[in-house]
Every structure is written in C-alpha cells, then in structure tokens.
Amino acid sequence: MRLSHARRNSLITGVTTLVVASAATAALAIPQSGHTVEVAAPAAAVSVDGKPVTDQGQADAAAAAAQAQAGQATQAKAQADAAAAAQAQAQAAAQAATQAQAQAQAQADAKAQADAKAQADAKAQADAQAAASRSQQRQNLNAAPTYSGTPQQIAAQMVPAGQLQCFSNIVFHESSWNPLAVNASSGAYGLVQALPGSKMASAGPDWRTNPATQIKWGLDYMNSRYGSPCAAWSFWQVHHWY
C-alpha cells in the first residue's frame, strides 16, 4: 500500500515525538561531588498525527460513543413499540370484523328461523281451517234430513253450490247418474263407483240403493283425498279415474 507524502511525514513526526517523550521519562544520573542526583523529566503527551491524546479526550470520546449507543437503543425501542402498537391495532380490527360477521350471521339465522316458523304457522292454520271445513261438511251431511228427488236433485241439495258442477261431471262420467251401476271389469259400484262398493257402508247401511247415501260417501271421499270435488275433477281429467 502506498502512502501520500503528507501522511508519511505525519507518521514520522508522531513516532519521533513518541521516542523523545519516552527518553525524557528516564532518570538522569549526574555525578557531582560524589553524589548522584536523579532528575525526573516532565511527562510529555503522546501525539498521533501531530494531535496530543490525553485521558480527558479519551473519556470524552467514550462518553460520546456511549451517548450515541444510548440514542440508537432509544430509537430501536421506539420503533419496536410502534410496531407492537400497530400489530395490536390490527389484531383489534380483525377481532372487531370477526365479531361483526358473527353478529350478522346470528341475525340472518334468527330471521331464517322466524320466517320458517311463520310459514309453518301459516300452513298449520290453513290445514286446520281445511280440516274444520271438511268436518263441518261431514256434520252437515250427517245432520241432513231425508232427501227426495232424482240423484241430480239430491246432489244439488247436498253438495256446496261452488262444487256441484265438478261433482256432477265426475258422477256423469263414472255412472251416468245410475245408483245401481256396476263396472263389469273392476266391480266398482254406484253413482261414484266406489271400489269396492261396500266402502259406502260407512255413510249408511242402505248404500246399495239410496242415492243420498252414495252421494254423501262420494262427497266425503273427494274432500278427504283431494280437498274438494273440483280438485278431484282436475285429477280425473288427467287420469280418467280418481
């Protein structure tokens, strides 16, 4: 490595000073009158690059270094605290979002349950009303007086007006309004072609000959199985049986 001229002279000067100072500290023995006198040379400060280095300078440098290190430590701690605070804030935001999502889900579940309950209640009420209507019709049939007239006239007295035409359509296609009609292949019997005909005994013991008994049983059957004679007629038109 090559040194510049100025740097080389500075090093030479520093070394020379160091040598002179070391020599000056040695004790000088001067013989005089048979006595030896030791003279202590004054201490000289060591210099490097022409600048004296003292104990006080070293202490100041050390203090400055310590102060700089303390400042760096303080700055690092402040950064760490800021990072920890940011992380805590992010965690708090995430927890708040999770809680909000859970609350929204709970509200949606509660609404779905309420809607399902409302639908179930409405269906139960409709079913109850339909059952009550059918029960009332059966009661009306059971309490009905003795009917007279043609089967069509008896039907007009027993079947609700809004359902009479549908009931008549079925009876016409099944038996042509003949209370003694018998299906040769199946054995179905009567106005409404009950199969077997003995089923109509639940409406009365005279089911074989009494049109009113057959109409009573047929109306109850249509209401129980299809909900009404018109619903039974709709089914009949598709399948040609009911």
Rank of each mutant, 00 (worst) to 15 (best):
R8L: 14
I12Y: 08
T13L: 04
V15M: 11
V15S: 05
T16M: 07
T17P: 00
T17E: 14
V19P: 00
V20G: 14
A21S: 11
A23M: 14
L28D: 12
L28H: 07
A29F: 00
P31K: 03
P31A: 12
Q32H: 13
G34M: 02
H35L: 11
H35G: 09
V37F: 08
V39A: 12
A40L: 10
A41V: 14
A43N: 08
A44L: 13
A45C: 00
D49V: 04
K51S: 07
V53D: 07
T54S: 12
A59M: 09
D60S: 14
D60E: 15
A61H: 10
A62Q: 13
A64M: 15
A66D: 12
A66Q: 10
Q69F: 03
G71S: 10
Q72D: 15
T74P: 02
T74W: 04
A78Y: 08
A80C: 04
A83N: 15
A84Y: 05
Q87P: 03
A88E: 08
Q89H: 05
A90R: 10
A97Q: 09
A97H: 05
A110R: 12
Q113M: 09
A116M: 02
A126P: 02
D127S: 03
A128C: 05
S135C: 00
R138M: 01
Q139I: 03
N140I: 03
N142W: 03
A143D: 03
A144L: 06
Q152E: 13
Q152F: 02
Q157M: 09
M158L: 15
Q163L: 00
Q165F: 00
S175A: 07
N178C: 07
P179G: 01
A181S: 13
V182Q: 10
S185W: 07
Q193R: 08
S198E: 13
A203W: 05
D206T: 13
T209P: 09
N210L: 08
T213V: 15
I215T: 11
K216F: 08
L219M: 08
L219T: 02
P229A: 02
A232W: 00
W233V: 01
F235G: 01
W236H: 15
Q237W: 10
Q237A: 12
W241P: 05
Y242D: 02
